[in-house]
Design a protein around this nucleic acid. Structure first.
Lengths: 151, 151
DNA sequence: AATATTACTTGCATTATGCAAGTTATTTTG
DNA sequence: CAAAATAACTTGCATAATGCAAGTAATATT
């Protein structure tokens, strides 16, 4: 049984994260500084806990994320992008730019336009924060329908 | 009822093409010069015809592709990327680069590396071919498990 | 006129997703 | 230190999406 549908890199990539949720988890890890199950869950998109658990398991299986126990709280697991995972930054950035340009989103066009003009610098900074474990979010949440009573 | 899960551009984008097939159709249109239902179907990934029909309908509904009747053959419908669709070129390119770099694919690393070094030029050429309806494929098929007896 | 091609639909089995509730292992609180 | 809370999941079940095989309607070709 062959492993993949085809040898096309695009196709093989989509086998790892071609669904409605995986790239959002990666986004959360990459630009929002999220690390725990709880944070992903409260990310605002409304992912169900069983699906979240499933996606985390699969992303780990394909080497995009890893886990480490939280040294300060034994209940927590901290998820983190691998090198392979952080290399998805250009993909996320292009999705961000495309979505902002072509859809009615909550993101300020001017800010994203600026990022589009400085792709290299943005990617460098994203990667720097990842490498140095700088927890500051690069982008905020943009508001969601699950936000009503939330702080 | 709110239209989207959240205001995040990445999330909203994935609502249009966040699945296992949509981006492959877009890839076929963008870099392989495919235009017809039949060609997508024989693309090598093994998409079922009902799913293909569904995805074409949805991509059209969100304005990423359009159709035009084939002037030479009344049976054929020619699909074509819209401006919004061709703007996904950077996303496809980054997926191609990432997949080649991190997975065992059928694409030659050297060639893709070269493309990664000349992203702007590659994107410009892809867009040119789209604008001028130049039918030459930019990338070949990379072989698939459905290829056994196929020429 | 008969056969082939293209772009689909339809029916049905299998799989994935969504939702609510429950579980286990730690903290935290009174 | 016992009780309540929290974190990270699981489980069960209904609904929706997907995959597969077969069928159909409108051209085109032989």
């Amino acid at each position: 049984m062959p492993k993949h549908r085809s040898g096309c890199p695009v196709s093989i990539s989509l086998e790892s994260f071609g669904d409605r949720w995986s790239l959002l988890i990666i986004r959360d890890l990459m630009v929002r500084g999220y690390r725990t199950f709880k944070e992903f869950q409260q990310s605002g998109e409304g992912i169900a806990t069983n699906i979240l658990a499933d996606r985390l398991k699969k992303l780990q299986a394909v080497g995009i994320i890893t886990t480490e126990a939280d040294p300060a709280d034994g209940r927590k697991l901290n998820y983190r992008l691998t090198e392979k995972g952080i290399d998805l930054a250009p993909v996320i950035l292009e999705l961000l730019i495309w979505g902002t340009r072509h859809e009615d989103t909550g993101a300020p066009c001017a800010v994203i336009d600026e990022m589009a003009k400085n792709r290299e610098a943005v990617l460098k900074e994203v990667r720097r924060r990842w490498r140095e474990r700088d927890p500051r979010p690069f982008l905020p949440r943009f508001g969601s329908k699950n936000d009503v009573g939330r702080r």
